[in-house]
Computed example of a mutant assay.
Amino acid sequence: MADSSNIIFEDRFTVETVDKDGKKFDRVSRITAPSHNLQMSLTLDLANELYPLQEGEVFTLAIARTLVPEELVNENDDEGSENGEKSKKIKRELWRSENMGLGEDYDYVMFGKIYKFDDSAQGDNQTTAYFSFGGLLMALRGSYRHLASVVVGENVYLLMRK
C-alpha cells in the first residue's frame, strides 16, 4: 500500500483475460486480473484504444481520493476560510496546471465514484467494491481489510501504469 493518505488502494496486477465473454463494445475491453501482493481480483472496463492491455501484461493500479499531492493540500488547508478556498481552487484547477499531481506518475487516469459495496459473496472476510468511471465499471474483490478505506458515494481517481 502507498504511504499517502490520498491513495486508498494500490497493488500490481497481471492481466489474466481480455474480453473473456466476448467483445461487447468496439472501444471498450473488460479485463480480469489477480493482484500480486494482496490476493485481490479485479474486473475492469477500459478504453482499449487509449490504454490497450494484453493477457500476461503487468500493471499497477491505484485508487486515490485526489490527484493533488498531500503536501500541497496540507500547506493550503490551514485555518481560515481564505486558505480553505485556496485549497479548493488548487484541487479544482489542477488539470489546467503544468504539474498534474499524481496523474503525472501514471499512464491512464479516470475519475469516478464508488457506488456499491457487497459483503454477501462467498468466502470468509471477502467483499467486493464496485466503481463507475463514466460508464466504465470496475469490481475489486478481496479481503475487507484491504478495502477498509473505501466509502460508498465517494469520488475517486483510478490510476494505472505498466
Rank of each mutant, 00 (worst) to 15 (best):
S4D: 09
N6S: 14
I7V: 15
I8A: 13
F13A: 03
F13M: 02
F13R: 05
T14I: 14
T17H: 07
D21C: 06
K24M: 04
K24Q: 07
V28Y: 07
R30I: 07
P34C: 09
S35W: 10
N37W: 06
M40S: 05
S41K: 03
L42M: 13
L42E: 00
D45Y: 00
P52A: 07
P52W: 15
L53W: 01
T60A: 08
A62Q: 07
A64S: 12
T66P: 08
V68P: 13
V68H: 05
E70Y: 06
E70L: 13
N76H: 14
E79D: 15
E79V: 12
G80L: 10
G80V: 00
E82I: 14
N83I: 00
K86T: 09
S87P: 01
K89M: 08
K89L: 10
K91S: 12
L94S: 07
R96H: 08
S97Q: 13
E98A: 15
N99H: 12
N99V: 14
M100D: 05
M100Y: 11
G101L: 01
L102Q: 05
E104A: 15
Y106V: 07
V109E: 14
Y115D: 14
D118R: 05
S120F: 06
Q122D: 11
G123L: 07
N125K: 14
Q126H: 03
A129W: 09
F133T: 02
S143F: 09
R145V: 14
L147K: 00
L147W: 01
S149W: 04
G153A: 04
Y157S: 10
Y157G: 06
